[in-house]
Amino acid sequence: MSDLAIDIRNVVKRYDQHVAVRDLSLQVPRGSVYGLLGPNGAGKTTTIRMILDIILPDAGSISIFGRPNTESGILNSVGYLPEERGLYKKMQVRRVLLFLAELKGIRPTDAAKRIDEWLARFSLVGERNWGDARVDELSRGMQQKVQFIATLLHDPDLVILDEPFSGLDPINAQALKDAVLELKQRGKTVIFSTHVMDNAEKMCDSVCIIARGEKVLDGGVAAVKKSAGSRNIAVSLAGGAQNGVSAVLRDPTFVRRCDDNNNYFELELFPNADAQLLLRRLIDAGANIERFELMQPSLHQIFLQRVGASGVEKGMSGHG
């Protein structure tokens, strides 16, 4: 058995006018939490759909746990939460879940048992048993839970979540994070795509950044950050950048890039710039410094640095 959950080799997908994915290769280690990062329109969803054999690649190969993804039954070990979510609105919750589980090769009697467990776990059984309600009687948050149950009901070894945090309320978002970590502890592989770098940085073991259908970089999060160097400085100022402070933070002899968040700044210095000198000049300028820290760049910084604002291909919208 392969120790790669997913092995994508030289995959190409062309549409009429543009190339959605060009010569993409990436490997997802078994048992890891893997982030597929990129701006909207970068080719994330196309890549995920090709992994799931929803779209056929024009060239290249994709294997799941060492077997080609076109092999019959292999997709039964994959759980998928698409970005565009929805359920049969007029159907009873329990019947929707049963149907989706059956499609993944679970026998109806087993599925019924699991559905009860999951409904209880997501507190959908209380004063009312929401399993017997119709989908459109459920609140949005409850529907999200049901959708998530549908993804995990057949106990997949590989879970693919496309923009899982979009549209989630904070409580469900936290529940999702907990669930992802629990899956990892149980040895499952989780891939999720996102354009929110904070989530990725906190949760992922490895990431791959893609833009314009191409891989920009990939690897373990620590290695990616390390290779990006530590010429970054985090600065927190009480009361924001007053008077000349702002000019110092943007001094082109020191600072290559300044990410200004009003009270918090993330600076990227030129390779030969002296951080101590910068600190002194900030004090001289009258800055009220709460934090001044040499640090590794955040994924967000790396992303901006490597992809830039031009990472989104013109004329494309909708699916990454």
Partner: peptide, 17 residues
């Protein structure tokens, strides 16, 4: 209905179209 309720993609990830 499958298309507009967006359930289609989940289903298609399990069954060939």
């Amino acid at each position: 209905e499958e298309k507009s309720s967006r359930v289609a993609e989940v289903v298609i990830s399990s069954v060939k179209p």
